[in-house]
Every structure is written in C-alpha cells, then in structure tokens.
Design a protein around this nucleic acid. Structure first.
Lengths: 110, 110
DNA sequence: GAGGTTGTTCGACGAATGTCGAACATGGGT
DNA sequence: ACCCATGTTCGACATTCGTCGAACAACCTC
C-alpha cells in the first residue's frame, strides 16, 4: 500500500470559502444551470456528477461543477470513475448566513 | 420644433424585485465596483451618482448604476441635473432575507 | 444665450463566459 | 485484453460584459 503522494491524478482544487472573493461566490450562483445544480444538492447527500441532466452537454456540466467547486461551494469525492458532489452547506451558512436560504427559496418569476 | 412624440425624458426602469430573476440579482452583486457602490449605499440615505468615484469613468459608473437599478436593487430620484440613488434595502431584505447582510459583511480576502 | 455641471447613450475594444464536439484519461466488467 | 461508462480537458465559437472616450441631453447659473 503506497501511502505516498498522488502521482497519477490531479488534486481537486477546493479552496476555503474565506479565501474566495465574495464576487466569485456570487458569480458562481448567478447562473441558471448552476443554480439548478445547487438546488438539487441542497436536498442533501451526495450526487454523482451524471445526476445533473439540465439540458447541457457533459462538458458543460463538468465546467459548471468546476466553477461551483472552485468557488468553495461544493466538495467532491472521487470514487472509481464517478465523482460525488455535495454542497458545503454548513460552511457557506457560517460565512454567509442567509445567502443560500435566500437563493434557494427564490421563486422563479414566471 | 414640433412634438414628434419623443419623450421629454426617459422613464427610469425600476422593476419590482420579484420580477427580476434571482440570477440577475446575483449577477448585479457579483462585481467589485457595484459591490463598492452597494456598500456605500448601505450606509443609508441618498447619494448623487457623482459621489461614487471608484476608479472608473463616469460612463462606466453610469453603466453599473443602471445594472443595479434594473436588478431592482436601487431606486433613483431625479432632481435637476443630478440623480440621487438609494438602496431598496427593505424590499431586498424582505424578498431575500440575509442576502444583503451576507454580502455586505463579507471580508475581502486580500 | 453662453458656458459649465451632471449624467446618459453610443460605438468600439478586449476579456471573460457558456456552450459544444472531440479527444483524452481512468476505472470497472466481462 | 477489450470494451464501455464516467468525467475532464482542449480548441473553437458566439455572446455577454466591463471599460473607455466622445457625443449628446437636460439643467442650472451668470
């Protein structure tokens, strides 16, 4: 069992939320597809990336998940060929109280 | 000159906050210059547009104030050649409780 | 009215963003 | 080993965005 480094695969960039500019966090949430992803994640638990089928290609989906991750909003666990994403709810709520609640409960203006 | 139906002055577009998509509200706040403006406005009261000198030209400043206004975040009162802007704090707080507080109290991770 | 102040609008430009298909990488199954 | 499923990365492309100077419009004061 080699407990040494991880030569083969890239480490996932998951910054601390406090190191991310507020504008980056807001920009990450200011997209319809990403907001749908966040809403789905807010149900709780982990979701494989492939779960999110919102009318975009898998390349685009991967891009959006990267934006959310690098904004400090999600955490990703690698398991085999799949990656499981979950919302960093407690951390977001602690640093930005009310932000997620405000965004998630928003009604879409018909 | 005859009156050609051309309006004497454009009406300011100030939508109701509930008619603005959440993504538009978030996008309006996801900019450094606009965030500085909102922070200044959060002090309370009205501010003339020229008050905001944040290293951008007056054309850019006018653009940012338009974005904030059309996102339903600010209200503008015309008085002579000046325009006085104020934050629609109550309405924002009512529709998105915690949003402004979360954004305004954010520390810059510089 | 002339001139100055305040703010908006109009192109124009570069940068950033969302999107896709295709190629690639990795791991699981048979 | 081969194939397939899951995701990422790489151009490429169109669109949007932030920025500016210049022109314009409205207003106030002399």
């Amino acid at each position: 069992m080699s407990n040494m480094g991880y030569p083969g695969h890239m480490e996932l960039h998951e910054p601390e939320l406090r190191d991310v500019p507020v504008t980056a966090v807001l920009a990450a949430l200011a997209d319809d597809v990403r907001l749908q992803i966040v809403r789905a994640l807010a149900e709780g638990g982990e979701y494989a990336c492939g779960t999110f089928e919102f009318g975009v290609s898998k390349a685009t989906r991967s891009h959006h998940l990267k934006v959310l991750r690098e904004a400090g909003l999600t955490r990703t666990r690698v398991a085999g060929t799949s990656r499981y994403v979950r919302l960093r709810r407690d951390e977001v709520d602690r640093l930005y109280p009310g932000l997620l609640d405000a965004v998630l409960t928003a009604r879409t203006p018909s």
